[in-house]
């Protein structure tokens, strides 16, 4: 990544972000800058609020009843938190991929053009073109081009997840948020998604939450590690991917990396070479 200068241009800036669920605090004083045209990974132990943080960026967090968010999130320097922001417009610019593929019980085609259709910016006769472009971008076109009008639920789980990605991209967002996008997938589909992230990040910004540190190393340019301090999630350390993984400065982060790699080794065994960090 030599094209990235020392202080890259950040398209998303988060500062002073706090999330409370009733009396309990979930995230404390989050400060993050996410550079454009790159992949940014959020890692950390479970329960640290990674998904919540991710959902603050497109304000999907507001759909969970009982959560209170304060602080600032800026996209291209423009404030997107607080009242007066067109949330639906914001979400057109920031797409989202969930842990499990969430396909609608409609046909493959209907799924892909689902967002586009409602935004009304593309004429109906251009939908097939949009669908083809999005499906191609998600490396799914060849597999589904003959079954565009079959129910999407008949696809395999891996295909469904790529369909969801295509659906998000059909709206042409600049940022795509991914919440553990491969945790429900088999190794082959996981590989496909990772390849996609590598390809997409050349012209879009990817923010990916993952529990798989190797995945973060493989796909991300920048990493932020969240930690739980007295029950509340905080950003412990952020930085360039290689630096952070090689020389974590914060003790908690180093400890998390050690335990995570031990866990990965014990679960996955020696299947993935170079799984350990040492």
């Amino acid at each position: 990544m030599d094209s990235v200068p020392g202080k890259p241009q950040q398209i998303i800036e988060i500062s002073g972000l706090q999330v409370h669920a009733g009396p309990r605090q979930i995230l404390r004083n989050i400060k993050l800058g996410i550079p454009g045209h790159s992949a940014f990974a959020l890692v950390g132990p479970s329960g640290a609020g990674k998904s919540t943080l991710l959902r603050c960026i497109n304000r999907l967090v507001e759909l969970t009843p009982g959560l209170r968010v304060s602080g600032e999130v800026r996209l291209h320097g423009r404030l997107v938190t607080g009242p007066g922001v067109d949330v639906d417009e914001l979400r057109c610019r920031i797409g989202m991929l969930f842990q499990q593929p969430v396909v609608f019980p409609k046909s493959v085609f209907q799924n892909v053009v689902f967002g586009t259709r409602h935004h009304g910016r593309v004429h109906r006769r251009d939908w097939p073109e949009v669908a083809e472009r999005a499906l191609t971008e998600a490396s799914l076109w060849n597999e589904v081009k003959d079954r565009l009008h079959e129910p999407a639920l008949r696809l395999s789980v891996g295909q469904q997840q790529r369909l969801c990605l295509a659906r998000a991209m059909a709206v042409d967002p600049e940022v795509i948020l991914m919440d553990e996008p491969t945790s429900a997938l088999d190794p082959r589909s996981t590989e496909a998604i990772e390849e996609l992230i590598l390809r997409l990040k050349t012209h879009r910004t990817i923010v990916v939450v993952t529990h798989n540190l190797d995945q973060a190393r493989r796909v991300a340019d920048w990493v932020s590690c969240l930690c739980v301090r007295d029950g509340v999630g905080e950003v412990a350390e952020s930085g360039c991917c290689s630096d952070l993984f090689e020389k974590p400065q914060v003790g908690e982060v180093a400890a998390f990396f050690r335990s995570a790699s031990r866990y990965a080794a014990s679960v996955e065994g020696p299947v993935t070479p170079g799984a350990t960090l040492e």
Binding site: L63, R91, G95, Q100, G115
Partner: peptide
């Protein structure tokens, strides 16, 4: 499922559109 709504909201649909196109059919 709530996820269906979230996915549709995540695509930039507003509440009514989600109701009409995702929730009501199901």
């Amino acid at each position: 499922p709530a996820l269906q709504r979230q996915a549709a909201r995540g695509l930039g649909l507003n509440r009514s559109e989600v109701v009409w196109s995702v929730v009501l059919p199901q």
